[in-house]
Amino acid sequence: MMDLIISTILLSLFIHFFDKFAKKRTIDGAYRIYVSVSNNKDLKKNKEILEQLLTVKKELNATSSQDQFAKWARLNRKYEQLSQEWEKQSANVKIFQDTFKRVLSLFLWILTRGFRFYIQFKESKTPVFFLPAFLLPSWALWVLSLPRSIYGSVSLTVWNFAVQKTISGIF
């Protein structure tokens, strides 16, 4: 009983904070790894151009436009050209990137909610804890035991619902 109470609270907390802080980072990280590993030409090219762009930008910032105008101007031309090229190229990549991230987001959602749902389903007959009969009317006791827990107890489903609402309200 107590194990079940603690584990469901911890699981909900984990899911909540994962969604809030870690999910986006996870998705971005996965995308970067995929781009590194992938043989997709567009992705590779986009990454290369971006790297060049950042290199030129860094060098541009390190060059004084007043002391070395010729060098600065050439770097600036290159930067402008790479910027346009990258923006054009990004238009192609962005669609794929959006799709990739959306699918991954859905996958993570299914993973987290699915796991919780599985636990609920598996332990649906297990009562989390019992309530004294005199506290509530019989119909309320019946509702709290839905869908398949013992009458007079609070079911895992109801308990998870309460936990989630509480966590959402607090954080």
Binding site: D67, Q68, F69, A70, A73, R74
Partner: peptide
């Protein structure tokens, strides 16, 4: 100084 830069660029 700037003239040199002009000629180079």
């Amino acid at each position: 100084k700037y003239l040199a830069q002009i000629e180079e660029l």
